[in-house]
Design a protein around this nucleic acid. Structure first.
Lengths: 119, 119
DNA sequence: GTGCATATATGCGTAACGCATGTATCGGGC
DNA sequence: GCCCGATACATGCGTTACGCATATATGCAC
């Protein structure tokens, strides 16, 4: 256990692309293009540039947030081009920390009157 | 009405600093250093570099998200160095849009199991 | 086997960052 | 009056990541 030798909070704040990747992978293993389709399906703001995504995937792999995974058996296709990824323990931890940060910001926005609802 | 001739969503996603500025100014007029102190008070992750902040303030003023304001009368000090800012209508609109984006992301994180609570 | 969707990768110019440093004023202590 | 730390804002510098375009190759359907 050494790959994860950095403080979780040192990764925060995550860039939008990075959080999307963690969120997408939290639902199960995905390959890059699949992550893009996830984003489109959710109707995310700013449709996620492919160059940005693939570079982010490499970076996150090097940082140990995600790791390569074998093609899931549920997958009928045996497309050799695909690179599958999964969350690492560190990636999950960082994703959770970022989610908490976003939640806290959302609360602050509500308290500050930027969001409808109870102050 | 021309200064605000850009689509609100074209500003999103905001950078962390920018959202913090809008959030801080939503509570009332502030000067740069005061915004920094706001961040420290809230215990924000990554303590907000001053260079980043002052550059962001200039950028946001040029984009019409914020505007210069006179020193509030509630202020006892007449410190000439201070630059006060206030939200513009556009800034408020963009801040709200970003807040909605963050809320939506938070919901997605909860649904994806990254946050405690109901799925 | 032709052709469009899928899939990943990278070159290029630019924008913003983090860190350090510079400069100046304010306000309290003595 | 003078000193000094806190306050306040600005900018130079090297680096990182971005957005856009382009490159390349395979999968699959017909």
């Amino acid at each position: 256990m050494d790959r994860r030798r950095r403080d979780t909070s040192s990764f925060l704040p995550l860039r939008p692309v990075e959080f999307h990747v963690l969120l997408s992978l939290a639902a199960g293993e995905r390959h890059g293009y699949g992550i893009i389709q996830d984003a489109e399906a959710r109707g995310d703001t700013s449709p996620l540039d492919v160059g940005t995504l693939y570079r982010a995937l490499r970076r996150m792999r090097e940082q140990g947030l995600i790791a390569e995974a074998a093609a899931p058996s549920s997958e009928s296709s045996t497309d050799e081009r695909r690179n599958y990824y999964r969350l690492t323990a560190l990636g999950l931890e960082v994703g959770r920390a970022e989610a908490r940060r976003l939640e806290s910001l959302t609360r602050a926005a509500r308290a500050g009157g930027l969001l409808k609802g109870v102050a």
